[in-house]
Amino acid sequence: MKNLKAIALALVVVLSTASVTAQTKKVDVTGSTINWVGKKVTGQHNGTVNLKDGALVFKGTKLAGGTFTVDMTSLTATDLTGEYQGKLNGHLKGEDFFGTEKFPTSVLVFKTIGTKSKDLYTVTADLTIKGITKPVTFEMAVKGNTATTKFMVDRTKYDIKYGSGSIFDNLGDKAISDEFELAVALKF
């Protein structure tokens, strides 16, 4: 009887400490969105950029990881049309900004994840733009088969200095904010 209790207790301990296997959920790139907003002294521009691929990793119901590749060649302004949209898109894809011919993708890889509340996580990730990798931290809400976040990226950390008032003097109303906002809605 003592042996049976000891075996039962050992089994309960083993089962309760067994690690939950990770489950990778592929992101639906056509159902997911990335919207951006870039501000300047005289206003702002907004637009979209597409995911090329991505996946979230869960352990049980808890977010445990993620990796995403963004198609920078899909970068487009949505607040303009025609010739002006073409000019801005060309400038953003050019060497002054994202250099998409040489750097057609950007990558985000989750490094650490902390639970803030039931469906809200604090994520620190490595973001690679133009071949330069820097950490970013943001909150991500995960509910059902969706995940959403909104965060700021300092473009000067990725050698995107064009029109930066913190780098160049005397720009006046031509200054462009160093930070741009990303609003991401993932379906998986």
Rank of each mutant, 00 (worst) to 15 (best):
D96C: 07
T146W: 10
I129N: 01
L63T: 07
G43C: 08
L63I: 02
K93L: 04
N46A: 13
K143M: 08
N35L: 12
E179R: 12
D71M: 11
T17C: 13
G66K: 00
K59H: 05
G131A: 03
R155Y: 07
S177R: 09
K40V: 09
S177Y: 11
G165N: 11
I176T: 05
M152Y: 04
K39P: 04
T149R: 05
L80V: 06
L127A: 07
T105V: 14
L63K: 05
K102Y: 14
D53S: 11
N145F: 00
L51S: 01
L15M: 15
V57H: 08
M140F: 08
K59I: 01
H45R: 12
I129E: 00
G165D: 04
V136I: 12
L108I: 12
D119L: 03
T21L: 15
F151S: 08
E101R: 13
T81P: 09
L4M: 12
D119R: 12
F151G: 08
V184Y: 02
G163R: 05
G86E: 10
A141E: 08
K118Q: 14
T137R: 10
G38K: 00
K52R: 14
K52T: 06
K39G: 06
D169M: 09
F98I: 07
G172C: 12
K134M: 09
N50L: 11
A183T: 12
T78M: 06
S164Q: 11
K130R: 15
A8N: 09
L4F: 12
T100S: 09
D178H: 06
A8V: 15
K174F: 02
G114F: 02
V153Q: 00
N89I: 03
G131I: 03
K59R: 15
T115P: 09
I129Y: 00
L92P: 08
V41Q: 13
W36Y: 10
D126I: 06
S117Y: 08
G31N: 14
F188T: 01
E83W: 03
T24Y: 09
G47F: 03
L9A: 14
Q44M: 13
K143D: 08
A64E: 06
F180D: 11
V153K: 02
L171V: 07
I132W: 05
G82P: 07
M152I: 02
T69C: 01
T115A: 09
I176K: 04
F98D: 02
K40Q: 13
V12L: 15
A64Q: 05
V123N: 01
K40M: 09
I132L: 05
V13T: 08
T81I: 14
D79E: 10
V49E: 08
K59Y: 05
S164V: 01
L56D: 00
T76G: 05
F98A: 05
K134Y: 01
S166Q: 14
T67P: 05
T73G: 01
L75P: 02
A10K: 12
T30I: 04
K93I: 03
D53T: 14
V37M: 13
E139Q: 14
T24K: 15
A18F: 15
K161V: 13
G86R: 10
F151W: 09
L75I: 14
T146P: 04
T146E: 15
K157W: 13
F110E: 00
I7N: 06
L56M: 11
D28M: 01
